[in-house]
Design a protein around this nucleic acid. Structure first.
Length: 405
RNA sequence: GGGUAGAUUCCCGAGCGGCCAAAGGGAGCAGACUGUAAAUCUGCCGUCUCUGACUUCGGUGGUCCGAAUCCACCUCUACCCA
């Protein structure tokens, strides 16, 4: 393999790395051989979202550097539920749902790293081994190596001490640690990565291998992708920002990044695109409106990774059309010609969740058709609007060219 | 097993028989100001056939002209005692 640059240096310079164990040993290991590493994903939905993006990018960088990604699907641990960052128990899922979600994940992940060729990524489901565990054997072999006292000091449990924590969930850490051990034995996996909220779980796994096998194993966590205000990124009024174009359209996806906080642009460019670090710094050096160039670049690059260059270009042009005034490139939607009432039109366009919301928006002066502000709830489209199409505006952000059929 | 305190709208959290679709905050959306940013100020923020109607306050059943509020039972949670 090529070892021009140690992957750790890449990840560090882009701001991925939050915590590691035995940093020097890990650095040497990553610089000297192809290291199989894993990251766990909970199959709780049929699409990945922005929250997973950073981990996917990290895996991508690492595969490019010659390391082998192992995607661990938490089909087994999903039956338990990770208590980290949770105040209540997770819903349990059926095997069919989990399998379906895995299939969807794989398609999306393929855009970040390859499941073929050299250092091909592999996807494994921990239900395959966790389901078969024998309770007595397990607690003797693995349980004996865990100190409850130590576990209780872990942040992920501490926060649950007030709200309550069932024994089921308490076992999550053991399961995840066992995963690492299993992957170590069967896939030669020596490194577990994860979000920083996974630190205690990740660390416990590496510890387990060191105790049980007496061999080195490593842990590394990544910065959590949060906004400058410390909130988790990727939440909007419509819920999470998904990678599935059917849940979040490429245009909406593009807009999400285009509208990001000034303070978060540089961080996101480094973490979520392949743009060269020096170039990013150049783009982000201005504190005024020139930062918009960086935002455009961010939105384009990120959309390109997820949806491909063609759709990224299209989204960019649509955005320029919508905000630059040119109707030609604006996102277009088609509605039936017999829908005339403005409220029905809004529902049909999907810009509001309910008719009440539509009324509130109209009442608040947030709706325009062409240059005309709509003030009446019973506003109806004219024949010429139906015939020729029109431009619908919701606030400053949503601009849609509407044609009828 | 016993005792105590709880379960409220997306989240936190008030309400404790009519004035409750339910205070306040957060998030979100919209208006003004801007740079498709932030901060700030303002409005909205259960649903609908929308000056009215309907469905919500863990579940089920009751009391009452009337219940998120009272009673009974149940489910879940925390704390204390064993």
């Amino acid at each position: 393999m090529e070892t021009k640059t140690n992957i750790m240096d890449t990840l560090r310079s882009r701001g991925f790395v939050k915590q590691t164990v035995f940093e020097e040993d890990l650095y040497k290991l990553l610089g000297s051989e192809s290291v199989p590493f894993y990251i766990g994903f909970d199959p709780t939905a049929d699409s990945l979202h922005v929250g997973h993006f950073l981990a996917l990018m990290a895996m991508s960088h690492m595969q490019k550097a010659g390391h082998k990604p192992i995607v661990l699907i938490g089909g087994g641990t999903g039956k338990i539920g990770d208590p980290s960052g949770r105040t209540d128990m997770r819903q349990m899922m059926t095997d069919e749902t989990i399998q379906h979600n895995c299939d969807c994940f794989k398609v999306q992940m393929s855009k970040f790293f390859s499941f073929d060729g050299e250092n091909a990524a592999v996807m494994v489901n921990n239900a395959d081994w966790l389901d078969k565990l024998n309770y007595i054997d397990f607690i003797r072999d693995i349980g004996s190596l865990f100190s409850v006292n130590k576990m209780l000091t872990a942040e992920c449990f501490k926060s649950r001490m007030e709200k309550g924590l069932s024994f089921l969930e308490f076992n999550y850490m053991l399961m995840q640690s066992y995963d690492f051990l299993y992957l170590y034995k069967n896939y030669g996996c020596k490194l577990q990565c994860g979000g920083d909220d996974q630190w205690s779980n990740v660390l416990a796994g590496a510890d387990l291998i060191r105790r049980k096998e007496g061999k080195p194993a490593f842990a590394m966590t990544f910065t959590l992708l949060t906004t400058s205000e410390g909130k988790k990124m990727g939440k909007t009024q419509k819920g999470a920002v998904w990678l599935d174009p059917n849940k979040t359209t490429p245009y909406e996806f593009y807009q999400y990044w285009r509208n990001i906080d000034d303070a978060d642009v540089e961080k996101c460019l480094k973490l979520l695109t392949y743009v060269d670090v020096a170039e990013i710094e150049e783009l982000c050096k201005f504190g005024d409106e020139r930062i918009n160039a960086a935002k455009e670049r961010l939105a384009f690059e990120v959309t390109k990774i997820v949806h491909g260059e063609e759709l990224a270009t299209q989204s960019r042009n649509q955005a320029k059309g919508a905000f630059g005034g040119s109707e030609d490139e604006m996102p277009t939607k088609t509605i039936a010609s017999d829908i005339r009432n403005i409220i029905d039109v809004m529902v049909e366009l999907g810009v509001v969740k309910s008719k009440s919301e539509a009324r509130n928006l109209i009442g608040g002066g947030g709706i325009k058709i062409g240059d005309e502000k709509i003030e009446a709830f019973d506003y109806c489209l004219s024949d010429s609007q139906v015939a020729n199409g029109f431009v619908f505006h919701k606030g400053k952000k949503i601009h849609i060219k509407v044609v009828t059929e």
